[in-house]
Amino acid sequence: MNKQGLIKIKPYLLVLPALALAFLFCYRPFFLTVINSLSNVSLGGKRTAFVGFDNYGRLFSNASFQDSLSNTLRFTLFFVPTNIAVCLGAALLCNRKGKLASLNQVFMFLPMAVAMSSSMMMFKMMFNPSIGIMNHLLNSDIQWFSDPKAAMFLLVMAGVWLDIGFDFLLLSSALRNVPKELLEVSNLEGANPWQTFTALQLPLIGPTLLFILVNNVKDAMLISAPVLILTEGGPFRSTQTLVYQMYLEGFKSGNYALGSTIATVVFALTFIIMLLLLSLERKRVYYQ
C-alpha cells in the first residue's frame, strides 16, 4: 500500500479495537438477545424457530416472572426513598466544620471501600437468626432469611449500605456549594433550620438529588448480585428480581429464550430510565 493510502486508513485502524469490542460485547449480543426473545432456542444456544411474541406471552403469564416484576418494583419503591432520606439526612447532619464532623464524614463514606460481595457476606453472617449479632443487639427473634417481609427489608438495608458512601459524598459536596452568604442571611432573618433547608438548600441541591434519584431507580431495577449472595431470591421467590430470574433462566435452567425475553424487558425499562437521566442532565447543564 502507498503512503497516502496508509495515512487515510490509519485512524480507522486505531479505533478498530474499540469498535470491535463494542460490536462483539455490546451490539451483537444486544441484537441476538432481542432475536432470541422472538425465537425458540435449544439448550446449545441455537435458534430453532421464529415464534414472534410467543415468549412474551409466556413470560407475562409466568408466575415466577410476575413475582420478579412485582418484587423488583417493590424493592425500587422501598429502596429509593429510604436511600435518599438516609443519605440526605447523613449529609445534612455532617455538614459542619471541625474535627468531629470530618470524622463523621469519613465514617459515612467508608462503606464505599468494601466490595459488594464482601459486604453481602458480612450482612449474611451478622443477620444469621441464630448466631448473628443483629438479633442479639435488637433483642429480637426475626427470621431474616425465612420471613418474606424481613428478607425484603434486609435487602433494602443492604442496598442502602452499599450506596451510602457515594451518595453521601455527592450530597455533601452539593451542600458545601450552597453559598455561605445566603445561609448567613437566612440565619439573620430568623429562619429555623427546616425553613432554611426547604427554601434555600433543597432547591440548590435539586440537580444532584435528581441525578441520584434517577441513578438509584436504574440500579434498583437492575439489582441482582446482592440478591444472589444474600437471599438467593428466597424465601419462596419473595426477593427474586428481574435480572436474578434472567440469571436463573439462562444459567441454571438453560432456558435461553425466556432469559433473553427477560433481558429484552430489562433493556426497555433501563432505556426509558436512561433517556430520562440524559434529559435531566441536559437541563442541569443549562442551569449552570
Binding site: C26, R28, P29, F30, L32, T33, M246, G250, V266
Partner: peptide, 26 residues
C-alpha cells in the same frame, strides 16, 4: 468520525447485566 464516536459512546445505554447470557455464549 462522528458516527463511529457515537457508536462507541452509545454502548453506555446497554446495561451489561442484560447482556450476560449472550456474552457468556460468545
Amino acid at each position: 468520525r462522528d458516527v463511529l464516536f457515537v457508536l462507541i459512546i452509545a454502548t453506555m445505554l446497554l446495561p451489561g447485566d442484560a447482556l450476560l447470557i449472550e456474552n457468556f455464549i460468545t
